[in-house]
């Protein structure tokens, strides 16, 4: 128990140190370059504090909501399908060519179509992120599900397991660690795609806020937006870390 809390403390210290060193590099760079487009961390954080009380808080909320919603929808769609494709060769043979055809297409080209189909609001942005992230999670889940040892499945089958039992006792727990890894990658992608989607015909979200600050040449506000975006990613990563430790106790 003591050791556990010590490592938790150690982790906190290293996290703080790494953030501090990032801020230090930022400070040094801004002093060296002396560009209005690169304000230092102190004015940026001051602007962040002021803007959060103003409208930035709302934009952060909207973006967070969009990212989390699209990650949740992608998970719900991709994980079950991935598990099935990994186990059922016949279905996979039909789907594999589709996946390989659609996966490499940069989905952002569908944004205009989506905006016509589902409107300019949340739905078109969430759909776009889902389109990108879905495939990342799907392919990882499928490969993970396919890689499960046949001997393990046979052992459980010999206990009288039905196909559903195999999914419940073997496939689902086996793919969770890989799903979490793919979610880590997907969350970065999701934020990047969201940024793009929010800069096109949009009035809310961090993407809009950033582009708006940029066009006003309000660089301190812009960096306040960047801080908010970093914070969004950071919170998601910490959440996933926590989830991984809770769910993968057996590793």
């Amino acid at each position: 128990m003591i050791r556990k809390s010590e490592t938790a403390k150690g982790k906190l210290i290293t996290t703080v140190l790494s953030v501090l060193s990032l801020l230090l590099i930022w400070q040094l760079l801004s002093e060296a370059l002396r560009l209005p487009a690169l304000p230092g961390p102190i004015p940026s954080f001051r602007a962040f504090g002021a803007e959060m009380r103003n409208t930035l808080g709302f934009h952060l909320y909207v973006s967070t909501y969009r990212v989390l919603a699209s990650l949740a929808i992608s998970l719900l769609l991709a994980v079950p399908l991935g598990m099935v494709l990994g186990r059922e060769g016949k279905i996979d043979r039909y789907f594999a060519p589709l996946i390989y055809l659609i996966y490499p297409i940069p989905k952002i080209v569908f944004l205009p179509v989506l905006m016509v189909l589902v409107g300019l609001q949340d739905l078109s942005k969430i759909t776009l992120i889902v389109l990108v992230v879905f495939f990342q999670i799907l392919v990882t889940t499928r490969d993970s599900s396919r890689g499960i040892s046949g001997e393990l499945v046979n052992s459980v089958l010999s206990l009288g397991a039905s196909r559903l039992d195999i999914y419940r006792h073997v496939v689902w727990p086996a793919v969770i660690p890989d799903v979490l890894t793919s979610l880590r990658i997907a969350s970065g992608t999701a934020i990047a795609v969201l940024f793009f989607a929010e800069t096109v015909a949009s009035q809310e979200g961090l993407g809009y806020y950033l582009l708006d600050a940029w066009s006003r040449m309000a660089y301190e506000d812009m960096f306040a937006g960047i801080i908010a975006m970093g914070l969004l990613g950071f919170v998601i990563y910490v959440g996933l870390d926590y989830l991984e430790r809770r769910v993968c106790l057996w590793k």
Partner: peptide
């Protein structure tokens, strides 16, 4: 009952849950 070479234990289940797996399934 079949016991394969690697014993077919599920690494994500505790000893107790591994031992009850057949009974759970049935």
């Amino acid at each position: 009952a079949l016991i394969l070479q690697d014993y077919g234990l599920l690494p994500w289940k505790k000893v107790w849950d591994n031992a009850t797996l057949g009974l759970d399934i049935r």
